[in-house]
Simulated assay, not measured.
Amino acid sequence: MTTSTISRTLLATLAAALLTAGCGGSAQDATSSTPTSPGASPSSTAAPELTDQQEPPAVASLDVTIRGGEVIPANTQMDAEVGQPIVIRVNSDAAYELHVHSSPEHSFAIAPTNGQSFQFTVDVPGRVDVELHQLHTTIVTITVVQ
């Protein structure tokens, strides 16, 4: 075989390989940049495909007013899911500490001002009390489900 014939054969083989890779493989195969050694199969390092379009969980929220040592609402109930953002919005005329008995636990310093917002999540299902210890008041008990 002449050098010219070898070059044409090599070029034709390379062109066929490129066409096959571009047409026959998946998008992941065509764009994979994972180096492999000869004879080794490529490993998948791409993120798994999303099969369902899932919305992020809606925020569970509660508005609380503290005036003259009175808490509104008090001893209320609400539901949430594990990992769902929970927001407690507070208007207060005095400084207190908001304590969330969850896993993990959370504590928030309430200032004597309006428009405060405290966000947390709960990682373990169960009943979670949100309290103001100084006022000996449970604001809400949250039932957290999986």
Rank of each mutant, 00 (worst) to 15 (best):
M1G: 14
T2N: 13
T2V: 07
T3P: 10
S4G: 06
I6T: 13
S7R: 14
T9P: 02
L10P: 04
L10V: 12
L11H: 09
A12L: 12
A12N: 07
L14C: 14
L14I: 13
A15F: 08
A15V: 13
A15Q: 07
A17F: 05
A17N: 09
L18V: 13
L19A: 11
A21K: 10
C23Q: 11
S26A: 06
A27P: 10
Q28T: 11
Q28M: 09
D29P: 00
D29Y: 07
A30N: 11
T31V: 02
S32A: 03
S33K: 15
S33F: 09
P35C: 07
S37K: 13
S37G: 09
P38W: 01
G39F: 05
G39Q: 05
S41L: 13
P42M: 02
S43L: 13
T45P: 06
T45K: 13
A47R: 08
P48I: 00
E49F: 08
T51E: 09
T51I: 13
Q53H: 12
Q54T: 14
P56F: 03
P56I: 04
P57I: 04
P57A: 09
A58F: 08
A58I: 10
A58M: 10
A58V: 11
A58K: 12
V59F: 01
V59S: 04
A60I: 00
A60K: 04
A60T: 09
L62I: 04
D63S: 14
V64W: 01
I66L: 08
R67C: 02
G68V: 04
E70K: 15
E70A: 14
P73C: 04
A74K: 12
N75W: 05
M78C: 10
M78G: 13
V82F: 01
G83A: 05
G83N: 04
G83E: 01
I86F: 02
R89Q: 11
V90F: 00
V90R: 03
N91D: 15
S92Q: 07
A94Y: 11
Y96F: 15
L98C: 08
V100N: 00
V100C: 00
H101D: 09
S102K: 02
S103C: 02
P104E: 01
P104T: 00
P104Q: 01
E105Q: 15
F108A: 10
F108K: 09
I110C: 09
G115L: 09
S117Y: 02
F118L: 06
Q119R: 12
F120E: 07
F120G: 03
D123P: 05
V124C: 02
V124Y: 00
G126V: 06
G126Q: 06
V128Y: 03
D129R: 15
D129K: 15
D129W: 05
D129V: 10
V130I: 14
V130W: 03
Q134D: 15
L135T: 01
T138V: 15
T141Y: 00
V144I: 00
V144W: 00
V144Q: 00
V145C: 03
